[in-house]
Design a protein around this nucleic acid. Structure first.
Length: 649
RNA sequence: GCCGGCUUAGCUCAGCUGGUAGAGCACGUGAUUUGUAAUCACGGGGUCGCGGGUUCGAUCCCUGCAGCCGGCACCA
């Protein structure tokens, strides 16, 4: 079943342009050996004309070839893919009768989906992992075999691997069916794989068990997925595990409780109880955004929470999202009211009041819109995914010609806001026309072009998400990267040619005729709740001074300083600073520790000396040193430092 | 919603094979007036998530439900 050795000579071109000549088909292993023994040892796979191949697979004709070693970027993916195979093998050794399905390499690791009646238990992971280490230590040789399609299907059916048989049936006829052997164990796989299991190394760890639908479709059977992580060496593995640990430390659910920002409870699932400190943060963010919006020409509005289902039927939401809407009924009325899941129809109602002229466009209606959606229970996650949330929503009613300028302005505004909030790394995805859509290609063309050129003009990095737009128009999705490299999609801008018309909104154009306005749906933060969650994790709770719920604590050393501490706090409150006092009968060490752990940015210590001299000892969070400041000097310093970014200079 | 796991004091967690619960921190009281990451002593606090069952007896075993956690699916 291995390829026939070709009698023809083969010319191999290396990346540096050097050519090697072989009398017949040659394998990656042989090429590596011809280059040098060091490379022969380090070789993991070989790139042949841009495709990754097994080292042992004969290269039948002339080719450009590059030997892949552990140092190459592809190595990780190959290690992970091999590790997935070893995982499958270990599972089948330990749990006979388990069917294997698919097992790809993913970011940071790999997984494999299994079909087995008995569920895996977390305690099984160490056992499976131990077996994997053993299989790697066995250093089983890998063999690639090519099978006739029907024979492969018959074989997998016969050994009870029905999912594999289904996979082969669904492969295009043109596809070569390859089966990889690691020792006697084998699996349908496109490859490539290392020459033996020993090449994987031992820097892997199984991490979690999960349910996953066959082929990602909820209508299909649910399989059991085992996740693992794999790296080039122990050092990389440790670094990864450390990274996960660090991420857990800044989990917004943990910090939210520790910092007394909010809580959630059973009686209000998916809804946030904001505590005084958390709501201070919330308001600071909202106030900041409100100022930005006002300056950018938005008008803020507020629309009803409960709206008759008729309006939702008209907008099309009732038909599509009824199951995800909360509904309210009152005994004395026959009406059914829906709690708004979005703000657009409300804003359209405001637009529709009176007759609008083209002169009034663009009209930008903004709302911190409280929305409720019945999210599936399994989707809920802290304050990141909730059932009651507040969108920093706005709808720009404009003409087709105005789409471009409005988009540019929006991108700029959004970038300013993100930068002010500490996010510099942002990229944009442009989701273009889907197959199933309404509106003429001409209008789509205009909308997509407007979005794309606006994105460019705003100086943003963007990529295209073909076919991912909404049925009513293309959209921009803004993704930001946080301080530990995670990505969050927050902002969005969607072009909508449909809703305004559907809800009967129009304006009188220059030609005197009625036209439906284009609606741009846009949000910068997305949801206040979620964005605050992102902020907490981004800053690990150590907010910049302008967002810190408590900007400073004045802590006394002795009770003789109480009166002075109170006086200083009063003066700071008058200056608009958010300051607490700590007059407790505790040692200063204790107070320093406590407020440091509470992530208070500035600690102001006062004892007898300070009370006499009217000074404060300032200790900044994260610093181990202090500086003495006159009270009169400290106030303007902190006020200046705590100024919101849009008020500076 | 689906698969799996978890649920013991405000928090973090002990509690062997069933005999009605403990620690540290937090909280309260007292002593201590302290100079930059935990002062000492004493004390209060739990219907062991909720309901049903098995048992002489259930935090522990079985079962239903809820919530949470990890994924999957979903996210106008």
């Amino acid at each position: 079943m291995s390829a026939d050795p070709s009698p023809a000579p083969v010319n191999i071109t290396l990346p540096d342009g050097k050519q090697l000549h072989f009398p017949r088909a040659v394998t990656g292993t042989e090429i590596a050996a011809a280059i040098g023994p060091g490379l022969a040892r380090a070789a993991l796979a070989v790139e042949v004309n841009g495709q990754d191949w097994d080292l042992s697979r004969p290269i039948p004709g002339d080719a450009r070839v590059r030997i892949i070693t552990r140092k190459d970027p592809e190595a990780l993916e190959l290690i992970r893919h091999d590790a997935a195979h070893v995982l499958a093998m270990a599972v089948q050794e330990l749990f006979p009768g388990t069917q294997v399905t698919i097992g790809p390499a993913i970011e940071d690791g790999f997984y494999y989906d299994f079909a087995r009646d008995e569920p895996f238990h977390p305690d099984d992971l160490p056992r499976i992992e131990a077996r994997m280490h053993e299989i790697v230590a066995r250093d089983l040789p890998t063999r690639r075999t090519v099978w006739p399609r029907d024979e492969a299907i018959r074989h997998f059916e016969q050994i009870g691997e029905h999912y594999k048989a289904e996979l082969i049936r669904d492969l295009p006829r043109s596809e070569e069916i390859t089966v990889y052997y690691h020792g006697a164990w084998h699996d349908l796989c496109r490859g490539p794989h290392f020459v033996s299991t020993g090449k994987i190394g031992q820097a892997f760890r199984l991490t979690k068990i999960a349910g996953a639908y066959w082929r990602g479709d909820a209508r299909n059977a649910q399989l059991q997925r085992i996740y693992g992580t794999a790296w080039r060496d122990e050092k990389e593995l440790d670094a990864y595990l450390k990274r996960i640990e660090e991420a857990e430390k800044r989990d917004h659910r943990k910090l939210g409780r520790e910092m007394d920002l909010f809580h959630m409870q059973e009686e209000a699932v998916g809804q946030v109880f904001w505590h005084p400190k958390g709501f201070t943060l919330y308001h600071l963010l909202e106030d900041y955004l409100r100022r930005k919006l006002a300056r950018a020409g938005y008008c803020e509005v507020k629309t009803p929470q409960l709206i008759d289902r008729k309006l939702w039927e008209m907008s099309g939401h009732w038909a599509n999202y009824r199951q995800h809407m909360f509904v309210a009924e009152v005994e004395d009325e026959k009406k059914t009211l829906a709690v708004k899941p979005m703000n657009c129809p409300g804003h359209v109602q405001i637009f529709k009041q009176g007759t609008k002229s083209y002169r009034e466009l663009p009209l930008r209606l903004a709302e911190f819109g409280s929305c409720h959606r019945y999210e599936p229970s399994g989707a809920l996650h802290g304050i990141m995914r909730v059932r009651a949330f507040t969108q920093d929503d706005a709808h720009i009613f404009c003409t087709h010609e105005q789409i471009s300028d409005e988009t540019i302005d929006f991108c700029r505004l959004l970038m300013e806001v993100y930068r002010d909030l500490g996010f510099d790394d942002v990229h944009v995805k442009l989701a273009t026309r889907p197959d199933n859509r309404i509106g003429s290609d001409q209008i789509w063309q205009l909308a997509e072009q407007s979005l794309e050129s606006a994105t460019k003009q705003a100086g943003l990095n963007y990529s295209i998400n073909p076919g991912e737009g909404a049925f009513y128009g293309p959209k921009l999705e803004f993704v930001l990267r946080d301080s530990i490299g995670r990505e969050w999609q927050c902002g969005t801008l969607q072009v909508d040619f449909n809703t305004a018309e559907r809800l009967g909104a129009s304006y009188i154009a220059e030609d005197g005729a009625k036209h439906a306005p284009v609606m741009l749906h846009r949000a910068i933060l997305g949801s206040m709740e979620r964005f605050i969650g992102v902020l907490i994790e981004h800053y690990a709770g150590k907010f910049p001074l302008w967002l810190a719920p408590v900007q400073a604590v004045i802590a006394t050393v002795v009770s003789d300083a109480d009166a002075y501490a109170q006086e200083a706090a009063d003066a700071m409150h008058r200056a608009g600073l958010r300051v607490d006092t700590d007059l407790r009968n505790e040692k200063i060490n204790y107070k320093v520790r406590e407020h440091s752990l509470a992530k208070v940015p500035n600690l102001l210590v006062v004892g007898r000396r300070e009370a006499e001299n009217r000074t404060l000892m300032l200790r900044r969070l994260g610093s181990e040193t202090q500086e003495s400041l006159a009270l009169d000097a400290a106030i303007p310093i902190l006020t200046q430092e705590g100024m919101p970014p849009d008020s500076r200079n």
